[in-house]
Structure formats: C-alpha cells, structure tokens
Design a binder for these strands. Structure first.
Lengths: 385, 385
DNA sequence: TGGATAATGCTGAGGAGTTTACTAACTCGG
DNA sequence: CCGAGTTAGTAAACTCCTCAGCATTATCCA
C-alpha cells in the first residue's frame, strides 16, 4: 500500500472528477443535487462545475418552466459527446463496430460479414473500412475517438497478440495493435471475446448486480470469461478462463453431440443444425433431447471446474446457443448440482451477439476513466498513448 | 467508480497515513527521507510527523554519533509496538498462534497439540488457552490486540462459519466468530487455511514477486488458495479454490497412491508413510517412483484446471508434502505441460506448516491498515467492530 | 578557530473548502 | 395584486493545508 502524498491541486482535481462522475449517467442536475452526490458543499460544487463548463466538460441548461416551489435551479449536463470510444468485434464471420459517447450511449453500430477464410491483412483492412464507415456515418474522424478496444477469439497477451491459438485464420501472426496504432493515437487495446462478453453482461446485461461472474460462451466454440470482485481478470498471460483446453473437459467436442444427432435435415448449415436440435428437443423429440443432455453433460464438467475454482455468484449462459437456454439451463443446473458444493445462479444472456462489441465499448470507457483519474481533466481531448 | 469528495482534513489524514506507511518497515528515518518517500514537502512532513509523535504513533531517536558532514538529523521511528495482531491456525492435530506487532515482526509463537477428535467446544477452549499463553508470555492482554484472524480447514462463509464441510470434527456447527467476540472487541475474521497460506507465500514466502498465485496445499488433504491481481480471492460464498470437490479431479484419493505403495514399513503412521515413499523414490525405488508418479498424475489434473482457469504466474507447492518437492515438482511440471497452454512457474514453499498462521497475521495486519484508511488515525488504540 | 554542509525552525503567501449571510427568483394563498 | 414562504445563486470571512524561502543551529574538517 504505497499511498503517495496529496497536495491542494490534486485534491481539486479529484473533487472535480467526483463532480464529473456525479454528473455523468444522471439527468441534468442542480448544484444542490451534485453537492449531495459528491459530498461537497454547495459553493465548492458551484466553482468546480463552472470550471467544468468553461473547460467544455459540462453545459448549462437554463431553467425552464418550473413546477416546484422556490427559485428554479440551473441544471448542469455532462457533455457526453465531448469524446467517443469504439468497440469492435472481429469474429470469424462478421465484423461489428459500435461507437459510443462518453456516457455509454451508442451513437453508431455497423455490422458487416467477412470471409471466414480471410487472412489477417484482409481482415484488418475490412476492420478499417468498417471503422471508416461507422465514423463517417456519425460525422467523425479517428481523432475524435478517445479509446479503441478490439475483441478477438483466443487468449490475448499483454502486447495484444494471439500467439497461442485462435480460430481466426493466420491471426497468430497478426499484430492488430500496431495496425490500429497507425490510424489512432489514442489508447488501443485488444481483448479476448469471452472476457468482453463477461464485461458486457455486468454492464448492460443480465449480471449487473453481481461482482463475481463466470460468462460461458456456448456455441460451436465454447469458452469462458471471468469477473471477480467486479473487475475482469485476465490472468498473468491473458489466458484466464481457458479451461476448455483441458482434455478431461470435453468442451472441444461437446457441440458434436448436437451436430451428430439423427434427424437433422441434410440441408442445414453447422450453426443451423444445433438450432434444429434445440427446437426438436423443445418439441419433445427423444433423440434430440438425448443429444442435448449429452452436450450439457460435457459442458457441465468444465463449468463445474470454473464454479468450484471461483465460486461465482452468477454463471451467464451466452454465445450462439443462448437462444436455446430454455432447453439447456435446467439440465445444466441438474448436472452442476452433482458436481458443485454451492450452486451459483444460472442466467441466460440477453445481449445476443453484440455482447463482445458492447464489452469492448465498456473497456474503452474504463480506459478513458482511468486516464482521467491519473492525468486529471484539462480541456476534453483524446488521450494519447 | 463512486469517488466521493475530499476536504482539507481528509487530505491531512491521508498525508499523515502516507507518512505512517513511509515510516513503517524502514529503519528510523529523517524528515528529508520521509519527504522524499511520501512526496510531500519537508515542512509539511515535519508538522505531520510531530503530530504522529504526540499521538503516540512514532517516536524520536535523538541523533547519536553522526558519520556524515553537516548537522545530524533527528530520526523518527514507527512505534510498531503500539498495537499487535494475532494469527491462529486451528488444525486437526495442532493449534498454532502467532503474535505480531504492527510492523509484522513476530513477537510470540505458541504451538500446542490438540486431540484430533476434540469437539468444537473443546477445540475452542484450547484455542482460548493458547491465546492466553501467547499473550501472557508477551505480557499482553486481549485489549492490546487490534485484529485476530483464525484459519480453519474447509470453505468459510462471510459469517465465519464452515457450513459446507471440514475435516475438523463437528466444526460445521461451530461459530468461532461469536466465541472470539466474547473476548476480543477488535475485528475477528475466520479464513480458510489454503487461502491464508497463499497470502503468507506472497508476504514472506516464495511468491513475493508475483501478483497471480495459486497456492497448492499438498498433504493428506489437497486444497488450493488463490491470489489474483495481488489480493486474495474468496469467491462469492468463500468457496473459491475448492476444485478438489470435483470428482473428475481425483484430489481426494490422490494421496492413496502413496499410502498403498508396497514396501511401506507396517509401523509407519499415515503421515510418515508418504514421507517414506518420497524418500524411497528419492533413493530410486521403482515402486515408490511409480506411486509418486501416480500421485502426481492425479494431482496434475486439478492443478491444470486451476492453471487454465486462472493463468497464474506462479504455482506454489506447499503443505505437508512440500518437503518432498524435489521428487514431485519435476513430474508435476511434465504432467502440466501436457495439459496447459502456458506453463506457470512451479515453486516449492519454504514456510512449512507455519504458513497458515503467518497468512492469518498478514490478513489481520491488512484489516488494521484498512481501518486506519477509513477511520483515520487518532491516538493508537484497538479498532472496534 | 573559521568555513562548509546539512538539518531545523519560522514566517508569509497562496489555494481550497466551509460556513454564514445576503440577494434573487419563483410559487402560493389571500 | 401583493406579501409570505421557499429555494437557488453569490460574496465575504474564516480555517486549514501545503509550500517556498530565509535565518538559525549543529556538526565536521582543514
């Protein structure tokens, strides 16, 4: 615990930040409200918030028709559009970019399919195009972006490389940080997709109340992302949550139980096959029900390992199969009771396949916040690396 | 991120704390040295440190024979004996209490055997006696103790109960917090033994440089404690690290491979049997080597699950078998390479069976520090619950 | 003994937040 | 239409903290 001394200017900086955080995410607020939220006196807040206005962080809303008794108060509003952040999901089949203002309001979304076999260079130039288009549609330039987070599959190391393994063809050789650094001078971060989904579920999803979360990515691939004590845990080499690599945990082959279920129409694509099986199970088909049970049994071993290791409050069932949570969650719960000491809540994700990009946005926002905390707030502008 | 506003007095409080932390753990320091460490100006430090002296947190050491040129500086020393904390390991066979001052210097240690079959009431009164004796030997009363942490086996919930399971007979019904609260008005905490050992290894042991640590308790029982990003992780219900409960992980039966090794002298007790096997393996005995390998193989599955889930920097091999690390670590490493993506460092614990009590001391010290941080430092006295 | 060196002690300046009091603006009821 | 009651904005006085700078003091060395 190496606390360093504080002087007056730092104190003022911190108080100003606490005003910003009291302002943000709330409707336009009066000085009195802010004083209450920030724990400061009214005159102090007054000075600070006026400084924020002159710097461009906040703006005044002159009192309109007042309903209450007494002199109507000026209201101050956080200028959420002072800066923006970008969250990008680089998937095998699609690229999804989400643009958000500083308050987390989404101001642009663009999804575009990409050739599953595209090599890194092609994939990255497609990323560039998507970025250009989503920024263009919002009338913005790369310099208006304050932080970028990009989600990919596979464990990501501190340099943003995916050297161990990934389903993206050739991606182990890619250096997306270097690529993006050519166009953005703001902080650029690469993160694993499961981890980002976990962050999204805690931000906007189904686990907002929990501090200890296991996000389970269930689809043709299976993976996990961990949030403990409210923050994302990456592990020392960025490979936390990769329990699926253990052979005793049959996550790699678990989806095969669904693919090989008898009765699947020959015309169905791999993704549709699973959906068909889930629907058939829902309709009471015996073979399909058995296939789902076998899938669940394999899934449960890995989940149990995670649950026993981490003792989370919530396990979020997400990924492509999350639409079929109704037929999976109950058998999964039964399997887990066999294995676990203390059963966590099981919840189905509702964010769908936007969760990765949303989590990326949230992480980018966190990056901006931590920069504000360490560098203080001068006039609003994009932080540099 | 709900930062609350700060005023002058809080700032002074924080600066005074930063002086305390600059003082503590260092040899007696001059004002100039403190100013450098705390990042404050010399006059500021001067005032603060004098306040600390009048409050009783620090004492002056008048300059003796000086070696350097110039006026010799007064030196200030942290009064580590202003308060003490107690760490207690309640094991099946022994109770070990360690008394430490505020700087972490051990000022008393007392180990006493206890009947393995003793019921909770008997065990707790034995704890009382050990506490009395270790305090008495140091000339102290319970009121001089600022925090107590007690380590037990089995997952501990937030209330300090061990309701799920534990090898301590009858202990699931025990309420050690209530018992200790009758004699101590200071904060009392109960924690799992593996978790405490992990804390100890990061404090004084073999993992001081690491922020992501898995502590492996290897003995007749097998367990784990987790430190991630530098802090102990308990999980939502306090049951983190209990991977051994998974049947696919054969931690429960792994030590049997050692017990059932042919050639063990019939006279050997259970604990000695394992030691004999390790020694025989060290001497090249084929059967013993095979037994160790089988043991290691079973151990490795669970360790691999932990490593893949958490991606730690270090795995510390501790517990009763840690003395035999030389014959276990290498095979364990080989097994792990088969299972894991990224192999962490494997290190053998050197703290021996004092690690639980040491970790308990460390946690109690942390408790004191966090009280100081939240309540500020008035005159030194035991914090209340 | 005098000079160099480094720590101490003191005073004033500057800055930040709080308290208090006062003024301004608005609603409501007679 | 006007005054009482209520709430917001503003200014002044005060407290408290840190810091810079200078004089003072203590010690060593030539």
């Amino acid at each position: 615990m190496a606390t360093t001394g504080t002087d007056l200017s730092r104190m003022r900086e911190l108080n100003q930040l606490s005003i910003v955080w009291a302002l943000r995410g709330n409707p336009p607020s009066t000085v009195t409200e802010l004083a209450g939220r920030a724990g400061l006196s009214r005159p102090a807040v007054d000075v600070l918030v006026q400084a924020l206005v002159t710097d461009g962080w906040a703006e005044v809303e002159e009192p309109g028709a007042s309903s209450a008794v007494g002199r109507p108060a000026r209201r101050y509003r956080f200028r959420a559009d002072a800066g923006h952040v970008l969250g990008i999901d680089v998937g095998v089949h699609k690229i999804l970019a989400v643009l958000s203002d500083l308050e987390g309001n989404l101001v642009g979304t663009l999804r575009r399919p990409v050739d599953p076999d595209a090599p890194p260079t092609a994939r990255l130039s497609e990323v560039d195009r998507v970025i250009d288009d989503v920024l263009g549609a919002a009338g913005m330039a790369p310099a208006d972006v304050w932080a970028v987070t990009l989600g990919v599959t596979g464990p990501v190391d501190t340099a943003g490389r995916t050297s161990l393994s990934t389903p993206l063809p050739g991606w182990t050789a890619a250096d997306p940080v270097a690529h993006l650094a050519a166009r953005f001078s703001c902080p650029v971060r690469i993160e694993n997709d499961c981890k980002l989904s976990a962050v999204a579920e805690r931000w906007n999803g189904v686990a907002q109340d929990a501090d200890d979360i296991v996000f389970l990515l269930a689809g043709l691939r299976t993976g996990a992302g961990l949030i403990l004590d409210g923050t994302l845990r990456r592990g020392h080499g960025g490979a936390a949550g990769e329990i699926g690599a253990l052979k005793a945990v049959r996550w790699l082959t678990a989806p095969d139980h669904l693919q090989s279920c008898p009765g699947i129409p020959a015309t169905a694509a791999p993704g549709e096959a699973a959906a068909w099986v889930f629907q058939a199970a829902r309709d009471g088909d015996r073979e399909a029900t058995k296939a789902v049970r076998r899938y669940t049994r394999d899934l449960a071993v890995g989940v149990a390992a995670l649950v026993l290791t981490l003792d989370p409050q919530v396990v979020v069932y997400g990924g492509g199969f999350s639409r079929s949570a109704d037929v999976v969650l109950e058998p999964l719960r039964r399997e887990l009771t066999k294995h676990c000491l203390r059963l966590p809540e099981l919840r189905a994700s509702t964010l769908g396949d936007e969760s990765v990009a949303l989590g990326a946005v949230r992480l980018a926002l966190d990056e901006v916040d931590s920069r504000l905390l360490s560098d203080g707030l001068s006039a609003p502008s994009a932080p540099h690396r």
